[in-house]
Computed example of a mutant assay.
Amino acid sequence: MAKYKVCKTSDLAEGQGNKYEVNGQDIAVYHVDGKFWATADFCPHRGGSLGYGRLDGKTVICPSHGWQFDITTGECLNNVSGEVNTFEVSVEGDEVYVELP
Rank of each mutant, 00 (worst) to 15 (best):
Thr9Val: 13
Lys8Ala: 13
Asp11Trp: 04
Lys5Asn: 05
Glu92Trp: 14
Ile71Trp: 00
Val89Arg: 03
Glu88Gly: 11
Trp67Pro: 01
Val6Thr: 02
Asn85His: 15
Gly74Gln: 03
Arg46Asp: 15
Asp94Arg: 06
Gly47Thr: 08
Leu12Ser: 06
Asn79Asp: 15
Leu50Ser: 03
Lys19Pro: 05
Asn78Ala: 00
Ser81Met: 15
Thr72His: 03
Lys8Ser: 11
Leu77Glu: 04
Lys3Gly: 13
Gly53Ala: 10
Leu50Tyr: 04
Asn78Leu: 08
His31Ala: 04
Glu21Thr: 13
Glu83Val: 14
Asp11Gly: 02
Gly82Trp: 03
Asn18Val: 02
Leu77Met: 12
Ile71Asn: 01
Leu100Ser: 01
Pro44Gln: 02
Ser64Leu: 14
Ser49Ala: 11
Leu55Glu: 03
Glu83Phe: 14
Lys8Pro: 06
Gln16Arg: 13
Gly34Thr: 04
Leu55Ser: 04
His31Asp: 00
Gly74Glu: 06
Ala28Val: 00
Asn18Asp: 14
Leu50Asn: 01
Asp11Tyr: 03
Lys5Ala: 11
Asn85Ile: 13
Tyr97Ser: 08
Gly57Ile: 02
Gly17Trp: 01
Asn79Leu: 13
Val98Asp: 10
Phe36His: 02
Asp41Glu: 09
Leu100Ile: 09
Ile61Thr: 10
Ile61Cys: 09
Leu77Asn: 10
Ala40Arg: 09
Leu77Tyr: 05
Gly17Ile: 06
Val96Ala: 11
Gln68Asp: 10
Gly66Phe: 08
Cys62Ile: 05
Thr59Phe: 00
His65Cys: 09
Gly17His: 06
Asp70Leu: 04
Gly57Phe: 07
Lys35Asn: 05
Cys62Thr: 09
Ile71Arg: 06
Tyr30Leu: 06
Gly82Asp: 12
Lys8Arg: 14
Thr59Ala: 02
Glu95His: 05
Tyr52Val: 15
Tyr97Glu: 08
Gly15Tyr: 00
Arg54Val: 13
Phe69His: 04
Gly53Cys: 07
Gly82Thr: 07
Gly48Ser: 08
Val98Phe: 14
His45Ala: 05
Val22Gln: 02
Lys8His: 12
Gly93Phe: 07
Thr86Glu: 07
Ser10Asp: 15
Gly82Ile: 07
Val96Trp: 01
Thr72Gly: 01
Ser49His: 14
Gly17Met: 01
Ile71Glu: 00
Asp41Trp: 10
Val32Met: 02
Val91Trp: 05
Val98Tyr: 11
Gly51Asp: 00
Thr59Arg: 02
Ala28Gly: 05
Gly34Asp: 09
Gly93Trp: 12
Gly53Glu: 03
Thr73Arg: 11
Thr9Cys: 13
Asn78Asp: 09
Gly17Phe: 06
Lys8Tyr: 07
Ala40Gly: 13
Val22Pro: 05
Glu14Gly: 03
Ala40Ser: 14
Leu50Gln: 00
Pro63Ser: 09
His31Cys: 00
Val96Phe: 12
Val89His: 11
Arg54Asn: 12
Lys5Val: 08
Trp67Cys: 00
Lys19His: 15
Asp26Pro: 08
Glu95Ile: 05
Glu92Ser: 15
Tyr4Leu: 07
Gln25Val: 08
Gly93Arg: 05
Val84Leu: 03
Arg46Gln: 15
Thr9Glu: 09
His31Met: 04
